[in-house]
């Protein structure tokens, strides 16, 4: 029925089936088609799962425990991003410093932590650091460096992301026009005051979108902490899925449940990230427009 008016509007057309479909397709909005593609993919996957004996009842029993563990992911992420921002602030000061010691330390830091795999770094903090400490320090101090898996994991993630964010912050600082620091210097402000009061507030605005992206990536990478062998109290969705899935030979169900948890989490934060970016750019555009 809906095809008919289009046919009349376009005379002298041969009426093949393919052509009718094409004409009909023109009326369907693009995003509806995309949604249909997503539905088909999900449907195929679901059909595959069910065919392979996917145990929905098991998932129903265990999904809640896996999903509940998302608070561990959120806690890990928030602690780690706070540490990482602190490290990146320090690191970026070093990267823009002309002091060879500060520049050298920050260069070594970013090179090593960006140049080695995150998983290796996590095990270095968890297993190698205690050995180093025991070899160097008296027993009572060495035990300070023997950390539970979750502590080693958070520190490891923070140092790794801190290294990447160091470069983000450095570029943010360098993006602030040189005249800003010069104007502050000419007023007699100290280098510290120039940085804190003039440079960093302007750099922050520049680096917020990129930092948001790092945070979302970090939330997913906290799943690696489970590989260090966290206890049940500190088990995140992935760790929970492994523990319960292996016990019942229900790995597919458990891991899909965990994957969905992370997916949902990143979807939520990506949404906020997008809103934040829109708001910041809009604020700037509006100011410019009002000025004219």
């Amino acid at each position: 029925m809906p095809v008919a008016p289009t046919d009349e509007a376009v005379p002298h057309q041969r009426h093949g089936l393919a052509q009718s479909l094409e004409l009909y397709s023109l009326k369907v909005p693009f995003r509806i088609k995309v949604a249909a593609v997503w539905l088909v993919i999900c449907g195929l996957l679901l059909a595959g799962f069910l065919k392979s004996g996917f145990d929905i009842a098991w998932m129903g029993d265990h999904a809640f425990a896996i999903a509940k563990a998302v608070w561990v992911t959120i806690a890990f992420s928030i602690i780690a991003i706070s540490l990482a921002v602190g490290l990146a602030l320090l690191g970026a000061q070093g990267r823009v410093s002309r002091n060879p010691i500060a520049y050298g330390i920050s260069g070594f830091y970013t090179s090593f932590f960006r140049g080695t795999p995150l998983i290796v770094q996590l095990f270095l903090w968890y297993l190698a650091l205690p050995q180093l400490a025991l070899g160097l320090l008296p027993q009572q101090y060495a035990t300070w460096f023997i950390w539970p898996a979750q502590v080693a994991g958070i520190v490891g993630i923070a140092f790794n992301y801190g290294a990447y964010m160091t470069e983000i912050f450095r570029s943010g600082i360098e993006a602030v026009p040189h005249g800003q620091a010069e104007a502050a210097a000419a007023l007699g402000m100290s280098p510290g005051q120039q940085m804190r009061r003039i440079i960093l507030p302007q750099a922050t605005r520049i680096v917020i979108p990129a930092t948001g992206n790092e945070f979302i990536a970090m939330m997913k990478d906290t799943a690696l902490i489970g590989l260090l062998g966290t206890t049940l109290l500190w088990a995140d969705p992935f760790r929970m899925a492994q523990l319960s899935g292996k016990a019942d030979f229900r790995n597919l169900e458990a891991l899909i449940a965990a994957a969905l948890v992370y997916w949902g989490l990143t979807a939520v934060f990506s949404f906020f990230q997008r809103k934040l970016e829109e708001r910041m750019s809009k604020g700037y555009v509006r100011q410019v427009k009002d000025a004219s």
Binding site: P177, G179, Q180, E182, A183, A184, A185, A186, L187, G188, M189, R197, I198, P201, Q202, R205
Partner: peptide, 27 residues
């Protein structure tokens, strides 16, 4: 020495993240 000299630049170099009053009061 810099505090005894006020300087005005070709490109103004006002602090864009502060109000006009805060610009003047900052130092």
């Amino acid at each position: 020495l810099r505090r005894t000299c006020g300087m005005v630049f070709q490109q103004f170099n006002l602090f864009p993240h502060m109000s006009v009053l805060d610009n003047v009061m900052e130092a």
